[in-house]
Design a protein around this nucleic acid. Structure first.
Lengths: 148, 148
DNA sequence: GCGTAATAGTTGTTTTTGTAACTAACAAGG
DNA sequence: CCTTGTTAGTTACAAAAACAACTATTACGC
């Protein structure tokens, strides 16, 4: 008999924590700006890193290009971003926020900042740092599982 | 100017870590048993906690009852579980694994056990414990965000 | 240059999810 | 008992995600 415990299984725990911690923030960008998860992510990438192409966002955010494509279309329709064709390579589109897009980003970034602090309120600064470090490592890992 | 960093935002980090760490395991239950995430979860609840009702699983797994309902229907169709009407309260169904269901559970549990160890291989035992403890706390929290 | 492959991005189709409405069975107050 | 409310679970319809196929443009090999 194994001592395996579902509720201590890391992927399960991570999912539960991710869902619980996303809920309240999700409510904000949905209620205030009618955004979906992928739209919020694209907005934040453009807000934080400046103009980028859809491919660059796809790589950095680890989102499939179809998700980016649809999120961009929606953000453009709502005048949060604009596209600009690259002169040299006409396949490429450079995306950048409009003033409205930047305002939304600034607003949501401030919320996110406070929310993050609230989530970590129970932990000391060094514990919080360690937690985020471990999560970043897990996020970057590409675990396989050879013949399990 | 804020020093906010998307990639250090806890809900975002948790999502990335959860997705990355779920991928390889997901592949296993999908390839071997054609299961979806919710089906795997129901299977594990029944395997670990013994016969339960759909409602009990719903509460413990924090899954909406419609997800349970569909997962149960699929698991039943594939002969991984059976239902039994409660004698006293005929609304209630007690769910229990069949031999095939238990075999699948035993197999997947063993994979999960090894996979968990692999994910945590870089951490010391006390770091791993602390990480899981923090995640459990986050998973249990019901953060609101009053007028942000 | 020309055929083939690769890249950027979009569109269409199928699954899966989310939300709400529904049936059936029980509970409780008068 | 009989209305009203609650709980267990299902079903129907709309929204979103996954996946594959598509167009357009550029790069590469010869």
């Amino acid at each position: 008999m194994s001592n395996f415990d579902l509720e201590q299984f890391l992927p399960y725990l991570l999912n539960q924590a991710a869902e619980a911690s996303s809920l309240a923030f999700q409510q904000v960008y949905k209620d205030r700006y009618g955004m979906l998860r992928n739209e919020w992510r694209v907005l934040f990438h453009l807000g934080q890193f400046g103009p980028m192409t859809a491919s660059a966002i796809s790589t950095r955010a680890r989102l499939h290009k179809t998700k980016i494509s649809r999120a961009v279309a929606k953000l453009e329709a709502r005048r949060f971003l604009q596209r600009r064709r690259d002169e040299d390579d006409r396949r490429v589109e450079h995306l950048h926020l409009t003033a409205a897009g930047r305002a939304a980003f600034d607003d949501l970034r401030a919320v996110a900042d406070r929310y993050d602090a609230q989530l970590l309120a129970g932990l000391g600064a060094s514990d919080a740092r360690a937690l985020k470090q471990h999560l970043a490592t897990l996020a970057a890992a590409k675990p396989g599982l050879a013949r399990m």
